[in-house]
Each structure stands twice: as structure tokens, then as C-alpha cells.
Design a protein around this nucleic acid. Sequence first.
DNA 1: AATGAATGAGAATTCATTCAT
DNA 2: TATGAATGAATTCTCATTCAT
Lengths: 199, 199, 199, 199
Amino acid sequence: MTKHPDPIQTMLVAARRTQILDAAITVFSEKGFHRATIKEIARVAGIADGTIYTYFASKDEVLLAVLDRLNETTERGQQFVLGDEQDLKAFFRAYLQQRMALLWPNAEVFRAVLPELLVNGELRRQYYEQVLAPTIAVGEQFFQAQNEQLQITIPLTVRAIAGTLLGVLLLQLLGDEVVASQWEALPEVLTALFFDKVV
Amino acid sequence: MTKHPDPIQTMLVAARRTQILDAAITVFSEKGFHRATIKEIARVAGIADGTIYTYFASKDEVLLAVLDRLNETTERGQQFVLGDEQDLKAFFRAYLQQRMALLWPNAEVFRAVLPELLVNGELRRQYYEQVLAPTIAVGEQFFQAQNEQLQITIPLTVRAIAGTLLGVLLLQLLGDEVVASQWEALPEVLTALFFDKVV
Amino acid sequence: MTKHPDPIQTMLVAARRTQILDAAITVFSEKGFHRATIKEIARVAGIADGTIYTYFASKDEVLLAVLDRLNETTERGQQFVLGDEQDLKAFFRAYLQQRMALLWPNAEVFRAVLPELLVNGELRRQYYEQVLAPTIAVGEQFFQAQNEQLQITIPLTVRAIAGTLLGVLLLQLLGDEVVASQWEALPEVLTALFFDKVV
Amino acid sequence: MTKHPDPIQTMLVAARRTQILDAAITVFSEKGFHRATIKEIARVAGIADGTIYTYFASKDEVLLAVLDRLNETTERGQQFVLGDEQDLKAFFRAYLQQRMALLWPNAEVFRAVLPELLVNGELRRQYYEQVLAPTIAVGEQFFQAQNEQLQITIPLTVRAIAGTLLGVLLLQLLGDEVVASQWEALPEVLTALFFDKVV
DNA sequence: AATGAATGAGAATTCATTCAT
DNA sequence: TATGAATGAATTCTCATTCAT
């Protein structure tokens, strides 16, 4: 009858949820949301089918929780602090490095949710508002501070850059091995691409 | 008993296939491949469920045919010919304009197949080899002709640019309205981003 | 508007029915009644699906017509006439020879209808009355004429002999190669089995 | 998490399988394999459709399990031991009695599988090898021991006798009421038929 | 009469979810 | 809480039958 939040209980619940979400991400990214079955997620998590329903109301809720994890990671990444980089180029490179380092370990989570994201309006709205919009806003503020003139193109420019990050991740997910093998060189290349002349 | 290809017959078959594929793209983009049912595709196409199986062996084959349509469109786009643009920048802008004009009407087709692409290895391989790899190869040749020095970064640079195209398309699919409303301005913005200094 | 039976017309119809039934027997015995499709029967017959329905009201009717053919063949066989065999044993051998020679070419027809016969009451009744009962009746009359004493066992004895014929056919259909390869020796062996002492 | 075979669990599983197989045999014999639906088997078994798939991978597997049951019964019958019958005729009568007593309760199982047996190569091979071939082999050994001279006809003679058993069963399945009502008299009649002179 | 595309009822199978133990 | 057997709605696919040409 105790309604007081028992700290040990809370931790156990969190641990179980993590265990289930890890399994879900694995299975979702291998098979996609629909081909993934509760049975297999349970198997990978080492628990019984029914147990998942003690922690999540439905399969959809599991997906939402995976998305939440992606959001949380991104939010943590949002707290980007400028080091003592001297110039804009150096700053940009550092920013890219951090963002892409964040993207890499989340690639499979991304693969797990993207399909549903593209197709499920509610999920898409949630992802856009919680992950993309803030990222883009940060970028817009940044450019606005730097550049007072070309304000009209700033929104598109920021989206182009954000798009590039999404795009190279997508290329990797689609099987491009150059991107996969040289992921760490990308910040440098992108910085050069954006800040130096192409030719 | 005639086995000779009857031209009228061939056209009727092509028309029916088109009718079914149009419906499939609509439903796939709205609901995703798995939530889309043959019943609904048939309803949208205005035919009976079973009729789809006269033209496609399975639901998977319908998806493959949708992907093929994407491929064909891309191939047509591959036959890009330089006008009399004076400099590289102008050429690049023209190239982007053409590519993005191609991407726009295919956005929904892309939304329809991308989810499965991420998750279905065979489909992914086919898409990568037939669509992405040629596009990237064209870009690499182009840069190689222009620039003999920075060869090591060329592959990544080309992928960054290709990724940017994919990325902005993805942003639009994820609900970004700035990209959607200013799609036509993107070639100019991207050209500026890549060829002029950012700031 | 002519209702007069046109003899040429009648022959054409009969020829088409034969063509279809031949195809049906082939496909039924290969795949069984249910796995056989009208499409395949039509293909084997070299006509279009729909055409079958000009000659038969339904797939069931095709099966009934196959059964009819079996019946007709049997009836023809019923008109067994005693040659000038001297003794009972010789007569019996001759009878078996004739019956089994009849059974052999009909084995596939038998394979085609037996499954449905076992399971479809109406079909079974029809087959029993038109084929089995007369055959058994002939046997009973024969034995009655020979043997006045053991009347009680005659019905069972006749059925045992009829059963033996059915049974060896079934063995062959079930893949027994000895029966298949020595089919023609069976009348002799059976006569010996029934008329001589086993050991 | 225990993978040790839990005896209670094992029994429950066996009971459910039996329950499903009993229902399957009933429905198969009534309607034949193809007209029988999983829905109806489930209804007869008093469970939900889906439950069948917890115990059998497919409808085909259900049929195979029915066949297995037939095999097991037959194998048990194979362990025929001679009592103290004095002569061959008495032995043969006892053998027939035992075989036919075995056949009778399995008649419906036989009706359930025979149609598919005739038409499904793999099933047929399995049945022939596991049921018929051993039975025939036993018979051949038996005759060989008795009779050294007429070896050439032994294989056919044994098949004729085996065929007689199959054949009278088939007659019964095809609706013959004399065989059905006097089943128990058959061993005596057959023994007389084979060991005494017909007339 | 012949054709074969179109139809849609019906079947096997899957799997999220429930619930008795 | 954990379990996993049971459930049955939903889905893909098949195919006998129809009918416009």
C-alpha cells in the first residue's frame, strides 16, 4: 500500500527498462520496428514476453522510449561549450567533432527509429520539436551572432549544414563504407568544405 | 495463343502497373511499408485485392518496383550535360538545381522506400549500387578532373555533398517547413555554402 | 435457334471434354484435387481458364466427370465373358488378368479421384454404387453358382478378393516397386494364392 | 530460465498435442486434409486458432504428426509374438487377427492421411519406408523360413496379402457395410481363403 | 465459343496483448 | 513481479468463378 517512491525499487525499474530498451534497439535496428517482435526483444533481453508489459504499455511505447533516449543524448550534446578556440573555423570544427562523435554511437538507435519517424506523424512531430528544432535554433543563433548581413539565407544555410550531418549518417546507414571507415575525418573535411573554397 | 508481344496489351499492363505503383507510393508514404495493407493499396488504386497479384508476385515485389521507379528517375538525371556555364560555381549551381528538382517530386517515393531500405539488407544493397554509387562516382570523376591535389579528401567531400542533398530531403520529410517552402532556393544557398566563404 | 442436336457440334464438344478430362486426370494425379488449379488444367489442355467453364459447371463437376470415366471403363470390363476355360482356376486366372489389365491404365485416374472419394460422401456413394457394388455382385453370383455350402462367408470372401485387387493397386500407388514391376505376374500369383495351398 | 525438462510441463505439452491431433484426425477424416481448416480443428479441439501454432509449426506438420501416430501404432503391432499356435494356419489366423484389430481403430486416421499420401511424394516415401516396407519385410522373412522353393513369388505373394489387408480397409472406408459389420470375421475368412482351397 | 483479367471470399499464419499461475 | 501459453484480430496470398471483349 506504500506509495512512497522507494529508491531501490526505482533503480530496479530503471535498470529493467534499460535492459529492455537496449534489446529493443538491437532488434529494431536489425529488423525494423515492424519485423521486430516482442518475443525476440524479450529473448535478447533475457526475460519473458509478458514482462515487457510490466514496464511498457505497448510495443509503440517501447519505440517512444527509444526515441526519448535519442532525445536525451542529443540534449546532453546541446550543452555545447566553446573552448578557447581562436577563430570561427576552429570553433566550427570542434562543434562538428562533438556532434558527430555523438551521432556515431547513436547510429543504430537512429536506424531503429528513423523508419517510423518518417511515417508516423506524432512521432515525427515529437522528434522534430525535441531534437531537430533545438539543434537548428542553436545554429541560427550562432550564425546570427556572426553574420548580420545575409540573414535571409541563414535558416537555409543552417539546415543545409544540419542536413549534411543527417545525410552522411544516412549514407553510412545505407552501406557506404567510405563514410563508415573515415567517420572521424569528416569534421575536418566538412569544415574545409564549408570554410575553404572547394577548388 | 499468340506469344508475340501485343503492343496494346503491353500498354494496358504498363498502365495497370503504374496505377498500382502510384497507389502503393501513396499508401507506403502515409503509413510505411508494413502498416500499408494490400487491401488499402487496392482500394486506393480502385481495384480488387487480388488484381494486384496479377501484376506483382508479392507485396515485396511492389516495393521493389517502387524502388525501380526511383532508380529510373535517377538514371535519367544522371545524364547531366553541362550547358555553357562559364565557371565551376555556375556549373555546380546548375547541377544542384537539376538534382534537387529531381529529388522534390520523388520525396514521397523516397519516404515510401527509405524505411525498408534501412532495414532490408538486400534492398539496401540494390539501392546503393544502382542509385547512390553511380551518383557518387560521377561526383568523384568530376572533382578529380578539377583538382589533382587533394585526392585523399575527394571521396569524403563528394559524400558530404551527396549527404547534404539526402540530408535536406530528410529534413523536409521529417517536417521541416523552411526546407519545404524554400526548396528552390537551396541550390543557390548550397553553392554559396560550398564555394564562398561561410562568413 | 436450332435445337436439333448437331452431330458435328456434339463431337466437337465431346472432343473438348476429353481434352479437358485428360488434362484434369494428369494434374489431379500429380497434385491431388485441391492443389490442382483450373489454371494449370487449362494450361495442360492448351486452352484458357474460362473455357473449362463452357464444358463443366465447376471444378467439382470436372472431378465427377473423371469419376464417370472410371465408371465407364469398369462397366466395359464388367462385360466379362467366359472363354472356354476348362476349370475354375483357369477361369479365375483369366478373370484376374482382365481386371488387372483394366486397373493398370486407370491407376492414375484412381489416384486422381481416390482422395476425394474417401472424404466426399456423395462421391463415395456414387462410386460404390456404380463401380464397386456391381463388381462385388458379379463375384457373389459367380461364387454362388460354384459353391452352395459356404454361403455365409461368400460375401466376405468376395470382398477379400476385390480388396486384394484394390490393395495391390494402392500398394503400387504408394510407391511399391515390386508390385509395379511385376504387375503382370500378379494374376498368376493371386490365383495360386487363392487356389493352391500357401505352403 | 530452467531448460531442464520439467516433467509436468512435458505432460501438459503432450496432452495438448494429443488434444489437437485428435481434433485434426476427426476433421481430416470428415473433410480431407485440404477442406479441413485450422479454424475448425481448433474449434473441435476447443482452443483458439493460434494455439495450434504453439504446438505445430504448420498445418503440414499436423498431418505429419498424424502420420507419426499411425506409425507408432504400427510399430507396436510389429512386435508380434507367436503364441503356442500349433500349425502355420493357426499362426496366420492369429497374425491377421492382431493386424486387423490394429487397423480398425486406425481406420479414420488412415482416411485422414491416405489422400495426401497418394499425392504428396515426401509423405508417401516416409509412410512407405516407416510403415509398409517393415511390414512387408516381416512377411517376407516369415515365408522364407517356411518355404525354400518358390522364392521368386514370395515378394508378390506377401504384397498380395498385405494388399488384401489394405484393400478391405479401403473397401470399408469407401462405404462397404459388409466389411464394416463383419470386420472381426475377416481373419478367419482370409485364412480360409489363403490356406484352404477356394472351392 | 474462347479468352484471360478481374473479382473477392476464404485460408494459413503471425504476433501484440492478456492473464492465470 | 515474472512467466509464457492462450487468444483472436489482422494480414498476405490463392484461386474458383465471372464476364466484357
